[in-house]
């Protein structure tokens, strides 16, 4: 039986370099366009700290400034606590609306192993029972380790495990991507 999941990007043969990085601002616009048809009366946006929270902040004016929204910091739900301890820079999660019954658009910047999303979903359920959760990310870099995948991604961008892709912000709030190569 073939257990590989076809929609999961496989390891690329020629991994991209910093020079070939896509423009994060264009990706952001594409993400917003993909999300627009999903907005209903019961939609709420939840961004995962920190990149996802930045995205939510800028998505709100485009999708509806009055949408209920919040931020999750998943430090208390991570599965690597036993080996890595508590993240030093944890922030309070802020979910100032009733999760119960809302269709949650869960937003993150880069999708990788799926472990952060697992933690985020566990935390969300401690606030209430959502009607549904849809995962939307700016970039799906491949490499998931759990049966979790984004339903919406502005870009499929397969990377190898020694590469680290990060969303960052210029001082004026514009997004850009940074690719780091781990030194062996």
């Amino acid at each position: 039986m073939n257990l590989s999941m076809p929609e999961n990007p496989s390891q690329p043969e020629n991994p991209p370099t910093s020079q070939t990085l896509p423009d994060a601002e264009i990706l952001f616009q594409q993400l917003a366009e993909k999300l627009k048809p999903l907005i209903s009366a019961d939609t709420a946006l939840v961004g995962i700290h920190s990149g996802g929270a930045w995205l939510v902040e800028r998505l709100l004016p485009l999708l509806g400034a009055n949408l209920p929204h919040g931020i999750l910091d998943v430090s208390f739900y991570r599965d690597d606590f036993a080996s890595r301890g508590l993240h030093k820079e944890n922030r309070p999660s802020q979910i100032p609306f009733a999760v119960q019954g809302h269709h949650i658009l869960l937003i993150d910047d880069v999708f990788y192993t799926g472990r952060t999303i697992r933690a985020a979903m566990n935390e969300l359920f401690d606030y209430g029972r959502p009607a549904s959760i849809t995962l939307a990310v700016l970039v799906n870099r491949g490499g998931r380790e759990l049966p979790i995948a984004p339903q919406i991604a502005a870009l499929e961008f397969p990377l190898v495990s020694t590469q680290n892709l990060q969303l960052l912000r210029h001082e004026d709030g514009r997004f850009y991507l940074r690719l780091e190569q781990e030194v062996a």
């Binding site: 208390f76 739900y77 508590l86 999660s93 935390e123 401690d126 606030y127």
Partner: peptide, 12 residues
């Protein structure tokens, strides 16, 4: 904030 939620527990 944890104490103000529906479920006042985290799994740490």
């Amino acid at each position: 904030g944890v104490a103000e939620r529906e479920v006042k527990k985290v799994p740490l």
